[in-house]
Write a protein that binds this DNA or RNA. Structure first.
Length: 427
RNA sequence: GGUGGGGUUCCCGAGUGGUCAAAGGGAUCAGACUGUAAAUCUGACGGCUCAGCCUUCGGAGGUUCAAAUCCUCCCCCCACCA
């Protein structure tokens, strides 16, 4: 089965250029393809996961993926899909962010022996000279056409307008593609559906300057069944960096998937065979939660490794109760089968306190210090509304102190609302 | 450069001297119901030493017993014209 059919089958394809030629190209060549990543944060988040997974699929089929970090374009900011002017960030920030992104991508892609490349467009963009650029590249672009591009149109119509540097983004991205084509034989660019205009511009530029056929693929914008762009939680973005978003929280994020999205997400974010997913469609009620556990397990395994996934699974079980995974449910998954029972060993977020603090700290302070609440008022409110628990017992008064008999096995388990836990370990 | 319209709590957006910590909606959070889902209902949603107090309505001054609301200057945004 060709990569293209696989991507299509798993729901990755929104749009593509030259369907048949691209199919040929991918079956007869060891293709090099690229996706750009913005270095605006030190970590990638779930929003980029579709792109990352697509690159992994390409690599699994013997093609060579390039992750292009936009060190040069990051200095400008892409207006696509943005409703307002993006903050321009400094070179130092970009450099720092680049390192983080590299580390994360290395968890998904094999960079050994140039099986995948990580490049930075600052390499060539910062060397550009204005006049030659206008003469060699700018002449190929029609402003009339550019302003019709969806990415610009929205901004042209909005009150905020579009600045000239943002307007140039399309040319720079097209130039990137051309550079990658010339220097690395890369003639396929992929990206989110908001990148269509930029990708097509690159395809055109390559045809006009290099005289070669280039291709583009865009992925759909993944929204949850409730219509919200996926990847946002109470904590903001769901980061792929374990420091910013623990593997337990990452696992929980996936477990909390909307019923209607389970199959879609299994296809996009795991490598489990498509035929196995057919049975998941028929699951209902509590049984569907088992499929969610597998989705969470697989997604966590891909991003944080198998050990982290098992730990997250155990932590989840000890918080939310035992879970039985039968042998015939999604057999392709390496999730440990059988019944998972509550154990003491888990990897719930925790912090350490000394024993002498007992009896001195009001619970409200504890909830705040530990990060479960953002202010004392917030904690007070939580208690008042009955959402604060110690070891599973609801706290009745906000000025309650932590006492000796709250300590169990040298630890205290705090809970805010239904799903947020934090463990206090005493020493 | 000219003319007009704006900048309100996470976002949108009401509010034009006291009844304003500021309507309404969204987002978010808690409770109920559940399956760690969705939908629904209820409540909360600046901070604190919490039946009270303190700090907020672009910024700095001023008028007033009292200002998000009036005056002055400044900064920023938008539209149209040049």
């Amino acid at each position: 089965m060709s990569v293209l059919s696989i991507l299509k089958e798993r729901g990755f394809i929104e749009d593509l250029t030259h369907t048949e030629e691209l199919e040929d190209y991918l079956t007869n060549n060891r293709a090099t393809c690229y996706i750009g990543f913005d270095p605006t944060a030190a970590s990638l988040h779930v929003g980029s996961l579709v792109c990352i997974m697509a690159l992994v699929h390409m690599q699994r089929h013997g093609h060579r993926p390039i992750a292009l970090v936009g060190g040069g374009t990051g200095l400008i900011g892409d207006p696509s899909g943005k409703t307002e002017l993006r903050k321009i960030i400094t070179q130092e920030q970009i450099d720092g962010n680049k390192k983080g992104i590299k580390n994360q991508l290395a968890r998904f892609l094999d960079f050994s022996d140039d099986k995948a490349l990580l490049l930075d467009n600052a390499q060539w963009l910062t060397k550009l000279e204005y006049i030659p650029f206008l003469r060699d590249i700018g002449r190929h672009f029609s402003v009339n056409r550019m302003i019709k591009a969806e990415s610009y149109k929205a901004r042209m119509d909005s009150e905020d307008g579009l600045t000239f540097i943002e307007f140039n983004y399309m040319l720079l991205q097209a130039y990137d593609f051309m550079q990658l084509g010339k220097s690395y034989g890369c003639f396929l660019q992929m990206g989110g559906s908001d990148q269509w205009g930029n990708i097509v511009a690159g395809v055109d530029l390559i045809r006009r300057t290099v005289g070669k056929q280039a291709f583009g693929i865009t992925f759909p914008l993944i929204t949850t069944a409730s219509g919200i762009k996926m990847g946002k939680t109470h904590k903001g973005a769901v980061w792929l960096d374990a420091e910013k978003f623990s593997s337990y929280e990452y696992y929980q994020f996936w477990v909390n998937t909307d019923d209607a999205d389970v199959v879609k997400f299994l296809a996009l974010f795991t490598f489990l065979p498509m035929e196995e997913m057919k049975q998941v469609k028929h699951l209902e009620g509590a049984d569907l939660n088992k499929a969610k556990a597998i989705l969470a397990y697989e997604a966590t395994k891909i991003c944080h490794g198998e050990d982290a996934a098992i730990k997250a699974l155990q932590a989840s079980v000890s918080m939310f109760g035992s879970l039985e995974i039968s042998n015939d449910l999604l057999p392709g998954s390496s999730i440990p089968r059988g019944t998972h029972c509550v154990t003491s060993d888990n990897s719930v977020p925790s912090s350490s306190y000394t024993k002498k603090d007992i009896g001195k700290i009001p619970v409200v302070d504890l909830f705040m210090n530990v990060g479960l609440c953002k202010s004392k008022s917030d904690a007070r409110r939580l208690v008042k509304q009955g959402g604060a628990y110690i070891n599973g017992n609801r706290i009745a008064v906000f000025d309650q102190m932590i006492l000796e008999n709250d300590v169990k096995d040298n630890a205290i388990l705090l809970r805010a609302g239904k799903k947020k836990y934090h463990k206090i370990i005493l020493n």
